[in-house]
Design a protein around this nucleic acid. Structure first.
Length: 326
RNA sequence: CCGCCCUUAGCUCAGACUGGUAGAGCAGUCGACUGUAGAUCGACUUGUCCCCCGUUCAAAUCGGGGAGGGCGGACCA
């Protein structure tokens, strides 16, 4: 796989393609980042962007993980002390998951976001951004919730972080595109560069298959799930025997194979009883998806396989969590 | 500073005028049917009625106080 394909694989969107091609042409030393509001337990949503960071490292880029403690504070997630603690747990789980400790730069937001220069730039952004724009860029605000001033400052800081962390690429879920577009538009006004962006897809809800909908409520798999939990959650997932369900629905089981399993494993083995045709082996997502579509691979077999591999991905983090909690 | 509205199941809300310890839809759980899930049937669960005080035999409901949330008016310094 060439560098450009590696950088953009499984990306829902890249802004702009031309800018990312330039990056791919000379990735050495280029810096990419994802910002995470500290959370004590990683779930598949975190891991999706982490997979992309691993791709970028493999492509030769430097990777920065922002442990956004100030952002979490602004979003009402507790005291700085509590946030610090969950951030440290988060970092440990990322490393357990596969982000290389040596080559990944973990940065706390509070290390630079309280500096004078940063603050003055922030105020300048406040001056030039309407409340409407800021609120629409604030992805972490739940729909229906009314924004506090802190919620409006939040996305402005996200934009500024890109400059202050000296980044060449901003990575995030598709839900982050508005804030990234804000950054692209406003940073040049402060005399800074407009950052290229890469957005990962939003995986459909496991139980309903609804994509793009309000995701945070649904069932997800996290580092604290036991093997049996993973099996049960995957087994109860929506999975029609097709890659393109009717209506706006997606097939979350296939999506998990595509975005979580195949990027991390060379070969997928479906263990299947002889009466159903015996074991199957896949080296690409495409071939697995085609077999599900054709009926060669039954959804129940796809599910048990998915559970096995997800469990394997989660196991190191689960172990780390257990250590932390003891 | 002033005024109006809201707060009841996980969610959206009905019930309040005319007091009798609570309902619907959705969600959820469990079965049936499918070699998965969903859909479809069938069954079932769910409550600090925002808090405190008062009136009453009896308060989600009436009166007083408070808290939280939403909206508007005024102010143009």
């Amino acid at each position: 796989m060439d560098t450009y394909d590696l950088i953009t694989r499984n990306a829902e969107e890249v802004v702009t393609d031309e800018e990312v091609r330039d990056l791919a042409a000379d990735p050495e030393g280029k810096r990419a980042y994802v910002g995470y509001e500290p959370s004590g337990v990683l779930h598949l949503g975190h891991l999706l962007t982490a997979n992309k960071l691993i791709d970028l490292q493999e492509a030769g880029m430097e990777v920065v993980v922002l442990l956004a403690d100030v952002h979490a504070y602004l979003n009402g997630k507790g005291t700085f002390e509590e946030i610090r603690e969950t951030a440290e747990q988060m970092k440990a789980q990322f490393i357990a998951y596969g982000l290389d400790e040596e080559s990944t730069e973990f940065v706390y937001g509070s290390e630079f976001q309280l500096d004078d220069d940063y603050t003055l730039d922030l105020h300048e952004l406040e001056l030039s951004t309407t409340m409407n724009r800021a609120q629409r860029a604030m992805a972490e605000l739940q729909s229906g919730e009314t924004a506090k001033v802190s919620h409006l400052v939040y996305p402005l800081m996200q934009a500024l972080d890109i400059e202050y962390l000296d980044l060449d690429l901003a990575v995030g879920g598709l839900d982050q595109r508005k804030v990234h577009m804000l950054a692209r538009e406003e940073l040049p006004e402060l005399g800074y560069d407009s950052p290229p962006c890469l957005h990962t897809p939003i995986v459909a809800d496991l139980t309903s298959g609804e994509g793009k909908m309000s995701s945070s409520e649904g069932v997800t798999i996290s580092m604290e799930d036991a093997t049996e939990d993973v099996e049960e959650k995957v087994n109860s997932a929506f999975c029609p025997p097709t890659r393109d369900p009717e209506g706006d629905l997606e097939n979350p089981v296939l999506e998990l194979f595509e975005y979580h399993v195949f990027p991390r494993f060379e070969e997928i083995v479906v263990e299947r009883p002889e009466k159903y045709g015996g074991d199957l082996t896949y080296e690409s997502y495409e071939s697995l998806a085609e077999d599900l579509e054709s009926g060669e691979l039954h959804p129940a077999d796809a599910k048990s396989t998915l559970a096995t591999y997800l469990d394997e991905l989660i196991e190191p983090g689960r172990e780390k969590l257990r250590e932390i909690r003891d």
